[in-house]
Every structure is written in structure tokens, then in C-alpha cells.
Design a protein around this nucleic acid. Structure first.
Length: 228
DNA sequence: CCAGACGTTGTT
DNA sequence: GTCTGG
DNA sequence: CCAGACGTTGTT
DNA sequence: GTCTGG
């Protein structure tokens, strides 16, 4: 699954990676947790637009927004059929830019965090869905969720699921509001080449979602990722 | 038909 | 053990 | 995802 | 809103 990630690249790199214009500076985030506001990229009136949405999708029909606490991920294999996600899958897709994501292993002596980033230093494009929820008083909450799939060879030793990472050549197809055929869209949600990612055990400081800073990426002393 | 859920993950 | 908050 | 709380009442 | 379970 994907329950924590980082977005640290400056606006200039974000703009370049996702072909955006007029990107305002965003504070680097080393420890983004569910329920927080995150940047998303979706189709807008004039090309791609950057938006801010709460992580944890609140379906438009929800009676209570607290349902979003549980909808931080959507299985890519079934999202097109699920009541909570089907409308968003066909009509409200987005990309969540990231510089890496965290997964945890084993429990004996606490959770051990691993950070997965691209070997070439490029940003990750996590496939996401979004929705808008109108509160009884008229207020609107924009929210989103991250799609997952089976882990590839790099992530599998740590965790069975990972976020869906889009290839740059598929960005347009994924964001295209005219495309609503789940079968075509599902083809874009493929496992990432293992060569893209590197695994690094990091400081358990990142475990506490209140902590945010470069220390989240500090290599854990004396530990190296398992080869299996 | 109506009522009630609507989700994922890991772990035991 | 399970829920809530970040 | 992990960390931390997990409750009620009345009074200020 | 839409699906599942009874």
C-alpha cells in the first residue's frame, strides 16, 4: 500500500517533470501522511492544473466525511467497480507528484521504515483519483486517494503492495477527461520496472507523522536493505 | 423489495 | 484490540 | 502509514 | 449514488 510519502522537489522541477506552468513554490515535505493536504495534477480548463486535496477520498455521495479516513488507497484491480471509486475512476483521475514513498517492515523492535525513490533522481507520478464533497453547510472538501497494485521485485521484500507509478508517456492518457473506458485506463496501471527504484532503510524518526524534515531520509545506521 | 455498506493493509 | 488524528 | 488514545461529569 | 446481503 502507500500510506506515507515525500514531495521535496522545488517548483521548477515539478513544472518540468509534469509540464506545468505558473507553479507556485511548495514547501518541501518529507513526511506526508493521510488526512493532510497534498498537491495533485489533473486536467483543467487550460491543460494540466495543480490542485490541493485532502488525502483520503470522500465520495460525493457520502453522508459523513469521516469515510475518507479509510479511503487513502484504492486497489487498481478493482477501483473501476467499487461504489466508492467507480465514478472517480471514469471521470476524476489525477497524478500525485512525489519524490519517494515509505513502506514499513517487521515489528520485533518497532516498525522499520524503508524509503523507495527513483535511481535517476526523477520524480514519481502516482496514479490517483479525486472527488468533491459538499458539506450540509455548503462548504466543499476536495479529496483524493492513491491507486495501488502488487509490489514489484524491489518493493516486495518489504511490502506486498505499492503505489501505481505512471510512465511520462501515459500522463496525458491517464488525465484525459474524454476517456472513460475502464479497460483502456486499466492498461496504464502496470507494474513499475524494478530498475526504476532503489530501497533504503531510513531513520525511524519518520514513523511519527508529526516529524517532517531531511532526517526522514537519513540512512539508518548499520542497516542495509535485504536482497530478498 | 429494503437496509446498510461503501476500503485497504497486515497479522494472527 | 480498535479507533482517531496527523 | 504510524502514534497515541481509549471517558464522563460538572465547573471554571 | 450504487452495490451487496438478507
Amino acid at each position: 500500500m502507500c500510506g506515507r510519502f515525500l514531495v521535496t522537489s522545488p517548483a521548477s522541477k515539478l513544472a518540468e517533470a509534469f509540464d506545468l506552468t505558473g507553479v507556485e513554490a511548495l514547501a518541501p515535505r518529507y513526511n506526508v501522511a493521510p488526512s493532510q493536504e497534498i498537491a495533485t495534477i489533473q486536467a483543467g480548463e487550460a491543460g494540466r492544473q495543480l490542485g490541493l486535496r485532502r488525502w483520503g477520498l470522500i465520495p460525493h455521495w457520502a453522508a459523513d466525511p469521516s469515510i475518507g479516513e479509510r479511503l487513502i488507497n484504492a486497489r487498481s484491480e478493482t477501483a473501476a467497480q467499487k461504489p466508492a471509486f467507480q465514478d472517480a475512476f471514469s471521470q476524476r483521475r489525477c497524478i500525485v507528484p512525489a519524490d519517494g514513498f515509505y513502506e514499513w517492515t517487521a515489528r520485533n523492535r518497532g516498525h522499520v521504515p524503508h524509503c523507495f525513490r527513483r535511481r535517476d533522481g526523477e520524480m514519481l507520478a502516482i496514479a490517483g483519483l479525486y472527488d468533491s464533497w459538499v458539506a450540509p453547510g455548503g462548504g466543499i472538501i476536495e479529496s483524493c486517494t492513491l491507486l495501488t497494485l502488487e509490489a514489484n521485485a524491489v518493493v516486495r521484500p518489504v511490502h506486498g503492495r505499492m503505489p501505481v507509478l505512471l510512465r511520462p508517456e501515459d500522463f496525458d492518457a491517464w488525465l484525459d477527461p474524454e476517456e472513460t473506458d475502464p479497460r483502456k485506463l486499466s492498461r496504464l496501471l502496470a507494474p513499475s520496472p524494478p530498475a526504476w527504484l532503489e530501497d533504503r532503510i531510513v531513520d525511524s524518526w519518520v514513523n511519527d507523522p508529526r516529524n517532517d524534515g531531511p532526517r526522514c531520509l537519513a540512512e539508518a545506521a548499520g542497516e542495509a536493505p535485504s536482497l530478498f
